[in-house]
């Protein structure tokens, strides 16, 4: 992982959500997989954090499938958190 302190902090703050459901999953994710966050995975994670809470929860809970193959791996990791 080659994120700066500021980048990591920004990422952590983006995990503050309106839905507790998302926060719990994102917290588990950061705990388990923060070290994996670089390159395309990091980009995918950032894209997902940019989603609205319901959209994100739909993907995480499997209520909706992810259309974008670039996000697939991170969505899978989130689903297992």
């Amino acid at each position: 992982m080659n994120m700066t302190n500021a980048e990591m902090n920004r990422l952590r703050w983006s995990c503050r959500r309106g839905l507790l459901e998302n926060e719990l999953v994102l917290e588990r994710f950061l705990h388990a997989h923060a070290a994996l966050l670089e390159g395309e995975r990091l980009a995918a994670f950032k894209t997902l954090l940019g989603y609205g809470d319901d959209e994100l929860w739909d993907l995480v809970s499997g209520r909706r499938e992810c259309g974008d193959p670039a996000l697939g791996e991170v969505v899978r990791l989130l689903r297992n958190c």
Partner: peptide, 8 residues
């Protein structure tokens, strides 16, 4: 704004 807790 749309991540405020009201979203829940």
């Amino acid at each position: 704004p749309t991540r405020s807790h009201t979203v829940a």
